[in-house]
Simulated scan of single mutants.
Amino acid sequence: MRFISPKSDFAFKKIFGSNRSKKILISFLNAIVYEGKNTIKSLEIIDPYNPGSTRTLKDTYLDIRAVLDNGSTVIIEMQVLNVEAFEKRVIYNIAKAYANQLDMGEQYTRLRPFIALSIADFLLFKNSSQMINRFRLKEEKQLFNYRDELTLIFLELPKFNKGLSELETLSDKWIYFLKAAPSLDRIPESLGAVSEIEEALTIASRANLSNQELEELHKQEVFIEDRRGEINFAKIEQNLKLISLVLEQKFGTINPVIMNKLEQLSLPNLDRLIEAILTFTSWEDVEGWLDD
Rank of each mutant, 00 (worst) to 15 (best):
I254C: 13
F125Q: 12
N70S: 09
I24M: 05
A120Y: 01
K138E: 14
K173Q: 09
L143F: 10
T60G: 07
S165W: 07
S118K: 05
A116T: 09
R134Q: 05
T253A: 09
Q249K: 06
S27A: 00
E216R: 13
H218C: 15
I274L: 11
E87T: 15
I76M: 04
E196K: 05
F154D: 00
K41S: 06
R147I: 06
V246K: 07
W174D: 00
W174H: 01
V286H: 10
Q220I: 00
R206G: 14
V83L: 04
Q264K: 13
L164S: 07
A97K: 13
S266M: 10
K7L: 01
L117Y: 06
N50Y: 03
F16D: 01
D185S: 15
K41P: 08
I91K: 01
K219W: 03
E225G: 03
G17I: 02
L184M: 09
G252C: 04
N127M: 03
R272I: 12
L102K: 03
Q79N: 04
T151I: 10
I40E: 00
E77P: 12
M259F: 11
T54G: 11
L152R: 11
F233P: 05
A97R: 14
I76D: 00
G163Y: 04
L152V: 06
A85M: 07
S244G: 14
P188F: 09
G229T: 08
L209W: 09
L290Q: 08
K37A: 12
D292Y: 08
N239V: 01
D47C: 07
F154H: 03
L167R: 13
A66T: 02
E139C: 15
K37P: 08
K88I: 04
I91V: 03
L170Q: 04
F114C: 07
L262W: 14
E44F: 04
K159N: 09
E35V: 03
A31Y: 05
R186Q: 08
L267T: 04
I258W: 04
R110M: 00
K141M: 11
L25G: 03
A120I: 04
V286E: 08
F122G: 02
K22L: 08
F86P: 02
F122H: 02
D291L: 03
E213G: 02
S27R: 00
D226A: 09
F28T: 02
M131N: 11
L150I: 08
Q249E: 12
Y98H: 00
S244C: 13
L150C: 09
A85E: 14
T253M: 10
K138H: 06
L102P: 08
D63I: 11
Q249D: 10
T169Y: 03
D103N: 04
I40D: 05
F160P: 00
I132H: 08
D271S: 12
F125E: 15
D291T: 06
I197S: 01
K159E: 09
I119G: 07
I258V: 11
A116E: 07
P158M: 11
A276E: 15
V257N: 14
L265S: 06
A193V: 06
F223M: 14
T73E: 07
N38I: 05
K219D: 10
R65A: 12
I115M: 00
I94K: 10
L278D: 15
